[in-house]
Design a protein around this nucleic acid. Structure first.
Lengths: 334, 334
DNA sequence: CTGAAAGCGCTAACAG
DNA sequence: CTGTTAGCGCTTTCAG
């Protein structure tokens, strides 16, 4: 069943002028009705509305935004969509934004700062109401574009560094330190680390090592895998680590995805967890908690980071840094 | 370090007129240089470019798009970002779109058709070059808006039904049928099913049952969980199923996430996989292949679906249905 | 309560 | 090679 051809000359979608003509009112009147702003008679209202729906009118926000001042778009830039952490950031931010009548435009950098720069430029060209980015590390040009744009910027997930405008997250360094302290307190002696090259994971790694050093200990072995943090990376990483250094009591992983991979490796090789080898993750992912041995981990307030970030973006408050903290969750893998 | 105040009257970001003035050329000349289109002298080129960078000029694509014809935006609408299937669709589509100079606007419906309708309307108001949606099930209004918009529409991931324009995916019904045939051939006798309420999973379920019936068999027990397909849903689902019906040889899960949950349940309860209970998933997720027992599953061409969908969207071909098929992958859980 | 007119910032003909 | 002139479709004064 085809829609009946609209009774207008041009071919494209119906415009406000078409609606106004069909409703026999002026353009500005039609505009007022459609936006439900200003005043108009009930009669006019129904005429405009029915004309609009008959013509299948969809307002052209390109034109609307250009004519008025700002858009109701918010850009969200995350490194990846497959690592537990970021989808939750998204979810949190999205729910707040949507509730406030904003539309979010999501883009993925794949951990590439140059691609991030391009995405920021591209987003900025749509004159968004604000931009949410992940982390504090950006190219200089990214930073200066963001500054010059005068749009609100929120950096999510990390507070160890210099922010541009609003920063919401937690200290990765402190989280790593807490992980180290915990393992020391639990009397693990031969401690290993498996991580990847992520900047934020690197900060946890630094904190972790510092905690050991402060306790007069040192890391027995470490394995940094290239590429993304994934189950595969964790599984491979642990395998390599144990090949080099079999006498470990516990391994700290850069995140839960990798820790799950490590756990899988142990299951495959018949290594008893936690008796023979204990495992500590980072993030508090749902998956980790559903394994036969719920994963010991450091829970990051992922949803809250997204929510608070979005709220602050919209609220128009001053530049600030919000530390949402983290929480050690003892599971059954330590 | 603050950027020096641009030497112009207005407060907002620099406009093309500002750049043109600073470079002492006409607006259209500046425009040509910036878009690297048409011809201009080398001297003018450098003047415009340096003026632009000095002013931190970011083109206003709102205005640009309004003035020219179409935007280079493509809307992508997926149900969720946490279920293995969709991120890969995204990745595939994104890579193609980005390569072709298009910017994708991603939105998430959370499996809510009404929300999808709102998102489609919202996207359409930005006059995108095209829209990629997931599946064939939409509200009537969604469908008619999409039709009326005359933008290219691609429906991804399912071909069992009526499409709007271009359809790229595979037959979920056939995949379910293949799963059933496989289990019959392998001589499993007491067959169970654990699924959720997703439409596409429902189609697989129908095909699965049909295969059993065609072989003169019937499903011994089934468990449909409410909500999303997740590890938790699979774990809980299998637990419930086995509580009711302990004598099963094999369970087919609606997807790999759920199957992983089922596998975890078996590990926890000391149920030997596949000796005591075999497990079959659907999707061919990476995680499933990394478990101690690589998951038997039906691999869907997720990335390819996204890529082909995006390519077809841009290529301007006719409305069509592309079946990318699927592939049975025997792991160690059957 | 309503409509006419003037842009928003840019691109796309067209003349020079 | 370059500048001038119209709009794109809408919102926003500002008079009726």
């Amino acid at each position: 069943m085809m829609a009946p051809p609209p009774s207008k000359s041009s071919d494209g979608p119906a415009t406000l002028a078409d609606v106004a003509r069909a409703a026999k009112v002026g353009e500005s009147t039609a505009s007022r009705v459609l936006r439900n702003q200003g005043s108009f008679s009930e009669d006019v209202r129904t005429r405009v509305l029915s004309a609009a729906s008959k013509l299948n009118y969809v307002p052209n926000r390109i034109a609307g935004t250009l004519a008025s001042t700002g858009s109701r778009l918010v850009g969200i830039i995350i490194p990846a969509v497959t690592t537990t952490f970021f989808p939750d950031l998204l979810l949190g931010a999205n729910s707040v934004l949507e509730g406030a009548g904003f539309q979010s435009v999501i883009s993925v950098t794949e951990y590439d700062a140059v691609r991030e720069e391009k995405l920021v430029e591209s987003l900025l060209s749509w004159r968004p109401a604000g931009i949410l980015v992940t982390g504090l590390e950006h190219t200089d040009r990214t930073r200066s574009m963001l500054r010059a744009s005068r749009t609100r910027v929120v950096e999510l997930g990390d507070i160890d560094g210099e922010g541009i405008d609003i920063v919401v997250g937690f200290s990765n360094r402190a989280a790593g330190y807490a992980a180290g302290q915990y393992l020391v307190k639990r009397d693990f002696r031969r401690i290993g680390y498996v991580g990847n090259q992520s900047t934020r994971a690197g900060k946890r790694y630094q904190g972790f090592k510092a905690a050991l050093v402060d306790a007069g200990m040192t890391l027995a072995a470490e394995q940094i895998t290239p590429g993304l943090a994934s189950i595969k990376a964790g599984r491979d990483g642990l395998m390599r680590l144990l090949n080099r250094e079999a006498q470990l009591d516990v391994v700290y992983f850069a995140n839960d995805d990798m820790a799950i991979g490590g756990y899988f490796h142990c299951l495959s090789k018949g290594i008893a967890v936690p008796e023979q080898l204990a495992i500590l993750g980072h993030n508090g992912s749902d998956e980790g908690q559903l394994m036969p041995h719920p994963l010991s981990t450091i829970r990051a307030p992922r949803l809250a980071v997204g929510q608070v970030g979005a709220k602050l973006l919209l609220s128009g408050g001053p530049a600030q840094v919000i530390d949402l903290g983290f929480e050690l969750c003892e599971g059954m893998t330590t």
